[in-house]
Design a protein around this nucleic acid. Structure first.
Lengths: 204, 204
DNA sequence: GACATAACAGGTCAATTGTCCTGTTATGAA
DNA sequence: TTCATAACAGGACAATTGACCTGTTATGTC
């Protein structure tokens, strides 16, 4: 006579929770999102939630590791390997992001940066996980710069600091775009970075 | 027989509240700071708090307008007017900020950026106030670039987009520094920006 | 001195927060 | 089939949130 037949689907439930959490954390922020809201979004009971993620920070850590890191990989690291050189890759990355932002009306910001700002204060473990994602991002970009420098003999550039500048410019531009709800900061930075990199790659 | 003699000091109480709020908002975040904590920090009663700031958002708006905007003015806009040109000013600004961060051990981030990330989602009015501060910052930097371009005949540079890049690079570098609790992103960006601007100003 | 109002005290309020509890059911191993 | 445990249901929990209430006192104006 029980109406609801329960189905055990641990991976599915866990994925639904993380999907809902990633979406909510990115669009509203980590602190601003409550566990109750997430349970409703993912359509899971309190018991299921507590079973998979005993505390909110466990969910936050999982979101960073599983989703945010993957988003950085797909949008920033993968294009580096399919493009001729870094300047071409960066221009393509910015174009894709700008097009996507203009497509859906609002700017919700860089997922990694959003999580970083929400989390950095309170929890040192979460901060270190975020820091590791930044590190992987910087590592990939820096390595590609270094390879370009060899192959194209553009030895004037400093791969490490240049990679930092690119990531910082993108993160900051996205933060400005989010605050102003306007993509133009990203367009500006795309142009300036393209010119900067073109000049660096012109030198021998 | 009343022990506590009350003293009416509206400006003082208001200033104490805003001071405490600015400090807490910058170091912990806007959402993460409760009104009760602020009352204790500022040593004011609930009545006094409600009198000056009926809602938390009123306090947030006041903090942005009175303190955050002033911090941007002092650290970023003022040095522009006392330096020979923008590259010199930016190098000085970065040096000051880096020295200050290294002095006190931890990196709490750019006040404006912190508020922007905490607030942009929920409240459109607060977002617009933050946006206005970004606008004033960009306006001041852009105008100084334009003046330099005339005086030094460095007409190759685009004041608008270059100012965006500088602000974005700083904001992003500070976000990275906060996440990693390490000033090196700022050092990297300082170096790269100095080289970039030197190249721009060398051309005629 | 009378009086209106701003400034403040101290406490209450419902709503929401994140966490955790006790049951119940599904699942796989022996 | 037996049984241990993982998976889940549904709710309760204390703590904390931001807002607001009724009084009381200070302050300036006439």
């Amino acid at each position: 006579m029980t109406e609801n037949k329960r189905t055990n689907d641990p991976e599915g439930v866990r994925r639904r929770i993380i999907d809902a959490a990633y979406d909510a954390f990115v669009t509203q922020g980590y602190l601003a999102t409550g566990m109750l809201e997430l349970r409703e979004r993912a359509s899971v009971s309190g018991g299921a939630m507590a079973h998979h993620f005993p505390a909110k920070r466990d969910l936050g850590l999982a979101v960073i590791r599983d989703r945010v890191a993957e988003a950085v990989r797909q949008t920033w690291i993968a294009p580096l390997h399919t493009s001729a050189d870094v300047p071409a890759a960066i221009d393509l990355i910015f174009e894709n992001i700008i097009n996507e932002l203009m497509h859906n009306g609002r700017v919700s910001g860089c997922p990694l940066n959003n999580m970083a700002m929400d989390v950095s204060h309170h929890d040192s473990e979460m901060r270190e996980v975020v820091s590791a994602v930044f590190g992987a991002w910087h590592e990939a970009l820096s390595a590609k710069f270094a390879r370009d420098a060899e192959e194209k003999h553009a030895s004037e550039l400093n791969p490490h600091s240049l990679a930092t500048l690119v990531i910082a410019a993108y993160s900051g531009a996205m933060a400005m775009a989010k605050a102003r709800q306007d993509v133009s900061p990203l367009i500006d930075c795309r142009m300036e970075l393209a010119a900067l990199l073109a000049a660096k790659y012109r030198l021998r």
